[in-house]
Simulated scan of single mutants.
Amino acid sequence: MKLKKNILVAPLNWGIGHATRCIPIIRKLQEHNFNVIIASSGRSLELLIQEFPNQDFIKIDDYNIKYFSFLPMAISILIQIPKILLSIKKEHAQLKSIINDFKIDGIISDNRYGMYSEKIPSVFITHQLEIQTPIFRSFIKKINHKLIGKFSECWVPDFETNGIAGKLSHTTNTTINYKYIGPLSRFTKKKSEIKYDILAIISGPEPQRSILEKNLIRELKLHKNKSLLLQGKPEKKYTDKINNLTIKSHLSSEELNLAMIESRLIICRAGYSTIMDLFKLQKNAVLIPTPGQTEQEYLSKYLSESRYFKSINQNEINLKNLIVNTQKFQNIKERNEDTNWNTLLNIFNK
């Protein structure tokens, strides 16, 4: 007799943000006596193996989205829609085997559109109910809502009112069964002495990840105060030092939690998972959106105009731009709107 229900958690491998925001969900599942099986690929899978070494893991295929240097990122993705839809279809077929082989009782999919089932409860996690694209917005919206509608529920990691994702996370569509679950962060706010003047967190897909890393190392190695740069490579174990700049390949969740608390200023991409962490820790930050990634460009503009964080473009990176006037962007206030996990996870007990 099976004592615990098996829940499959499957984050998309696009950067590591989808994986990091699944960490608090996995912890809550464990607290509520579910057995968690994790399915992902690439750096996301590597990160989750490090965080939960005693769990069962399944390697599944990537969507294999490519970026072309001669095209804006939005256009690159649009022309690959047929390939993405084919990947979703293959993913859905693979899921049927996983359900049978691992006796899965429920699914939580972070932006993997093929991870739904007609036979067991399936949950889709996204903060993008309304994807912001410069062209074909209504077409993309229609596809997005149709795919999300195949899931039992959609969990939106944002506040229902005054959300931190702006209009990305709010829709008037009544055909999707969505619930606002509040921002998701693996971190805990606590007091600590400042150790670093600047913490730079590198993340996101290539080649833009490496371009950002190179530009920030060029500037931060000239900074007179202590800085730390994290490369976002959980598969590596690497440390280097250039002047007052320390470079590390990766930190565990606990180590990164402390490093962010111990840093006066954080420089990072405008990825939503990182933004949720910044709000949780109430940290001052400079956002550098990935060029051509319309979600990040929208978020950085929205949050800068709301006086939460300073935002600069990647081609504007220099030491002066990074550190001047950041103190004007400190509008984060703590919000105690706890998620009712008992009610939320009850979908898997029905």
Results as ranks from 00 to 15, higher is better:
65 I>E: 01
173 N>R: 06
151 F>G: 00
312 I>C: 08
92 H>K: 01
269 R>E: 14
130 E>M: 10
26 I>P: 02
166 G>D: 08
323 I>Q: 08
283 K>F: 02
60 I>Q: 00
5 K>L: 07
141 K>W: 04
104 I>D: 12
139 F>H: 11
57 F>Y: 11
42 G>R: 07
337 E>W: 09
228 L>N: 15
170 H>K: 14
287 L>A: 10
309 F>D: 10
263 S>A: 11
108 I>Q: 03
128 Q>S: 01
125 I>C: 03
74 A>W: 15
144 N>D: 10
290 T>G: 06
215 N>E: 15
162 N>L: 10
238 Y>G: 04
156 V>W: 04
200 A>G: 13
198 I>E: 10
312 I>W: 03
260 M>C: 08
234 P>Q: 00
94 Q>D: 14
348 F>A: 08
117 S>T: 00
39 A>E: 01
284 N>M: 11
63 Y>V: 01
188 T>I: 10
88 I>N: 07
339 T>D: 03
239 T>N: 12
107 I>V: 09
91 E>V: 02
184 L>R: 13
320 K>P: 02
261 I>A: 04
153 E>L: 09
192 S>R: 11
132 Q>K: 11
64 N>A: 06
310 K>L: 12
331 N>G: 10
284 N>I: 12
148 I>R: 05
15 G>D: 02
246 T>K: 14
334 E>Q: 12
60 I>L: 00
21 R>C: 03
101 D>P: 02
20 T>C: 02
331 N>F: 06
216 L>S: 11
244 N>I: 00
103 K>Y: 13
278 L>Q: 09
132 Q>M: 05
82 P>R: 11
345 L>T: 06
121 P>A: 09
144 N>H: 02
237 K>V: 11
328 K>R: 12
241 K>Q: 14
95 L>T: 00
28 K>M: 13
219 E>T: 05
139 F>V: 15
116 Y>I: 04
304 S>R: 11
59 K>H: 04
185 S>H: 03
88 I>F: 05
109 S>M: 02
255 E>I: 00
127 H>Q: 14
118 E>S: 05
294 T>K: 15
56 D>G: 02
198 I>R: 05
271 G>M: 07
70 F>W: 15
277 D>M: 02
282 Q>K: 13
288 I>D: 03
43 R>Q: 10
155 W>Y: 05
269 R>G: 13
278 L>F: 07
8 L>E: 05
322 L>K: 13
73 M>G: 02
341 W>Q: 06
166 G>S: 10
42 G>Q: 09
35 N>K: 15
190 K>Y: 12
90 K>A: 09
57 F>Q: 05
242 I>E: 15
310 K>S: 12
169 S>T: 06
241 K>C: 05
240 D>K: 14
10 A>Y: 05
93 A>Q: 15
100 N>P: 00
243 N>W: 07
30 Q>H: 03
283 K>S: 11
292 G>P: 12
212 L>F: 06
28 K>A: 12
301 K>G: 09
336 N>E: 13
181 I>W: 06
147 L>C: 03
174 T>I: 11
252 S>P: 05
59 K>R: 08
179 K>C: 08
102 F>C: 04
96 K>Q: 14
121 P>T: 07
49 I>G: 03
253 S>Y: 11
20 T>K: 02
331 N>V: 06
44 S>D: 01
222 L>K: 15
89 K>M: 04
251 L>K: 04
45 L>M: 04
